[in-house]
Each structure stands twice: as C-alpha cells, then as structure tokens.
Amino acid sequence: MWKPLGAALLGATLLTHAPEVKAAGEADPLMSRSWSFTGIFGRYDQAALQRGLQVFETACATCHGLEFVAFRTLMDLGYTEDEVREFASRFWVEDGPDADGMMFERPADLPDRWPAPWANEVEAALIHGAVPIDLSLITKSRYGGANYVYSLLQGYDDEKTFELDPGNYWNRFYPGNVIGMAPPLFEGLVDFADGTEATVQQMAADVSHFLMWAAEPKLEERKRLGLGVILYTTAMAGIFYAMNRRLWANIKK
C-alpha cells in the first residue's frame, strides 16, 4: 500500500502549490536574493530594517500609505521610544472634534497608524492618476514576496520594445511591462545613517526587507516559538512510540 501512497502524496504536494499567474509571458522571472528572514532560524536584520525605513520614508511614503503599521511598532526596529515619537511627529493625522466641534490635524504619536499621504482614494486618484496602493501587505499579496518588490524597484532599465503613453514607465518585472509608477530610486537618493553606500540595489534590498517586516512583524516570534513546539512534539512522538512498542510487544495480532 506504500508505493501508491508516495505517488498520492506527491500529487497532493503539487496540489497545494498555488498556480502562478503569468501575464502572457511578458514579465521577466524575478531576481532573488538571500534574505536573513528566510529559513527556520530566520531573523530580520535590524540595520537593514532601519535603512529600509529611511528609504521608505524618502522614496515611497510620499505616495503610498502603510496603514497597518502603527508607529509604536517601529521600536521593533531597534529605536528608542523618544526616537520613534520624534519620527511619528513628522506625520500628520486627523483628530477631533475639538471643543468647538472642529476636526483638526495634529502630529502623529506612538499609538497612531502610519497615515496615507492623501485624504481619500478619490483625492489620491486625482493627484497620481491612479490610487497608489497601501504597502502594508505588499510582500504577502504578490508572488515572490520581498523578491517581487526587490525586482520591481530595479526593473526600470529602459529596454522597452514599444512606445509608452505619457505617465507610463517600462518595467521588466511588472506584468505587461507598463507601470504607472515612476522610478522611485536613484543612486544616492538617501544618506544612510550607518554610512552604507546608497546604490539602487542596496536601497531596493533594504526597503524590501522593511516591507517584509511591515507585512509580517511577528515572523521572529513565530519562528522562535515554532522551534520549541516542534522540539516538544518530536520528543513526545518518540516517547509515545517507545511506549507503544513496549505495550504491543506481547500482543499477538
């Protein structure tokens, strides 16, 4: 009964892999990079996260929101409470009504979530031509995850094979190769606090790292707890296997 089972399991494994949707074979296969957060012992790289935050603030946050990231959680990146409070105060959030019944804008604080840089989607569409999507979950909602963001940001290489309408850009990795987003990164865009050289590749890697954290902030806790749980279940499986062997040793089937 075992051999066919192997075939069945193989089939089942194939089944569980979601089919990849390729847009008529146009987008190139994604670039990949070895990330510190993959694998059983995967952890985020705090220096990369901090650089990524810097890139995100400079290059992305002017158009994109990060609505599921609360400023208080930036302390996970290794900042102190005061540093995060200072960072948050650069953003404005709506509050109120005040004593006069008026809504007002105030600097963001720790409990606030990262606001979108526009009031609503209609305004966003008017400003940008289309609504710049929220990036909180971008690495979980695209095939390739962090590699997708990493590739896309480096896909503006101008090898275009057809004419583009104004306001559109060529990108090797975007389905259909036509993207509405202008190239957001260029050499030396930011001055990294830790002195790392701000190449496009470096910035793309760091901001992808940061966006992976933004989408899955509990990854480290998850992988750490998982190790303990799996150690426990395998040890218990071993103990109960031994108990079972002893118990059944003298039973004639």
Partner: peptide, 29 residues
C-alpha cells in the same frame, strides 16, 4: 497510546506549516 503517538507525528507536521510555511495553503490575493 497509539493514537497519542500518531497525534504527535501529526502535530509536528501541522506545526511545521503553522510556524514555517503558514501561507502554503493560502491565496496571496
């Protein structure tokens, strides 16, 4: 005892997915 042994083998597989590949059965959309 036999069922608990099977349970722990099963829980190990279940835990591998929950902790290390939680999106295996999910749709990214």
């Amino acid at each position: 005892v036999k069922d608990v042994f099977g349970l722990f083998v099963f829980l190990t597989i279940y835990a591998l997915f929950v902790f290390y590949a939680p999106l295996t059965f999910a749709h990214i959309e």
